[in-house]
């Protein structure tokens, strides 16, 4: 007998419920040279009356004085839970744990990743670790892209596509180096990958800080708040492996059918589906059901009620690779309540 699993102690206790006063964490991604550090410095020096603790990667450097700067080695750990795409940032679990022992010194935390980093492990850390979940909330993934070099990056890098796919906010930097037609083309390219991220144009990172912080990108209550292009038609070119697909249903959805279907979709294709979000109108339910997932890790809850005069449209977005539109649409349609 090489290993023995002994009986678990019975009487599972409840984990601390996430409450108000969770410290917001903003994840800043982007390729080397896109202007991440410039944007970070801009955030830290802007007049917003808030203090931020900053976790920078080992190659990073901060151009401004900040009380709380932590150097991190990006340690991506696989969880030993049988889920192969379930990776977390082990260093971040430790660092956030230590930072939360002096909360009150800062209002938020900004985590900068290395240029080649996949945002998934950072995001998944906030789904997996109970203590991180109990004290902090992932506010948004902010991705800085270089308007001039983005097409080249997208052509040669899977990580560049992932960073755009994961973003809640995209800062399109260095817009002074590209003409308007070029910018429109780059934005269309970004939209093809990620349809619901907010895009802000910037030069030398000079974007309104309010457009970056407090985005509630992972807040169920604000899921699909931004739905700029929610037609099922897809006018964008498929230059990129990663694309976003959105679906709508007017008829009420059966809660059990939807849970079963989305569960199996994420189970089977969770490695390819980078992010997904949805707002569902369940039959016989006056409140919206909000849903979101990062790869296979899903989260869902009832949020605000529908208003009496509102059309109760269920909406779902998938961002990922190898997405089969007809199959996903048929699957979603099969969730309509009888």
């Amino acid at each position: 007998m090489s290993e023995t699993r002994t009986a678990p102690p019975p009487g599972a206790a409840t984990a601390p419920a996430p409450g108000p006063g969770l410290i917001p964490v903003t994840v800043l991604t982007g390729f080397l040279g896109a202007g991440k550090t410039t944007l970070l410095n801009h955030i830290l020096t802007a007049e917003h009356g808030r203090k931020y603790a900053v976790v920078i990667n080992e190659f990073g450097e901060l151009g401004v004085d900040n009380d709380l700067v932590v150097d991190a080695d990006e340690e991506v750990f696989e969880m030993n839970n049988g889920c192969i795409c379930c990776t977390v940032r082990g260093d971040l679990i430790r660092i956030l744990g230590s930072l939360m022992k002096r909360r009150g010194r800062f209002d938020g935390i900004i985590v900068e990743t290395t240029g080649l980093a996949d945002p998934a492990p950072v995001a998944q850390t906030f789904f997996v670790d109970e203590e991180v979940k109990a004290r902090t909330r992932l506010d948004a993934v902010v991705t800085v892209v270089d308007a001039l070099n983005l097409p080249a990056r997208l052509a040669d890098s899977r990580e560049a596509q992932n960073q755009i796919a994961f973003a809640d906010v995209i800062v399109l930097n260095k817009t002074d180096l590209v003409d308007e037609a070029g910018l429109a083309a780059v934005e269309a390219r970004i939209r093809g990958i990620n349809r619901y991220a907010r895009i802000h144009r910037a030069q030398r990172g000079n974007v309104d800080v309010a457009a970056i912080l407090d985005q509630g990108g992972f807040d169920l209550k604000r899921a699909l708040e931004v739905a700029p292009d929610f037609l099922e038609s897809d006018s964008h070119s498929h230059d990129d492996e990663v694309q976003s697909l959105s679906f709508e249903l007017e008829a009420p959805v059966d809660a059990a059918k939807f849970q079963a279907w989305i569960g199996s979709v994420l189970q089977e294709q969770g490695q390819d589906i980078l992010r997904s979000k949805g707002i569902l109108s369940y039959k016989g339910e006056n409140r919206r059901f909000a849903f979101q997932a990062v790869h296979m890790m899903a989260d869902g809850d009832f949020v605000a009620p529908w208003s009496p005069d509102e059309t109760r449209t269920s909406r779902l977005v998938f961002i990922g690779r190898n997405l089969n539109r007809p199959r996903l649409r048929r699957g979603f349609e099969s969730c309509v309540a009888a």
């Binding site: 002994t6 206790a13 409840t14």
Partner: peptide, 10 residues
């Protein structure tokens, strides 16, 4: 190897 599991928290 020895495994001791069943905890609700770390």
């Amino acid at each position: 190897n020895m495994r001791m599991s069943g905890y609700p928290q770390k």
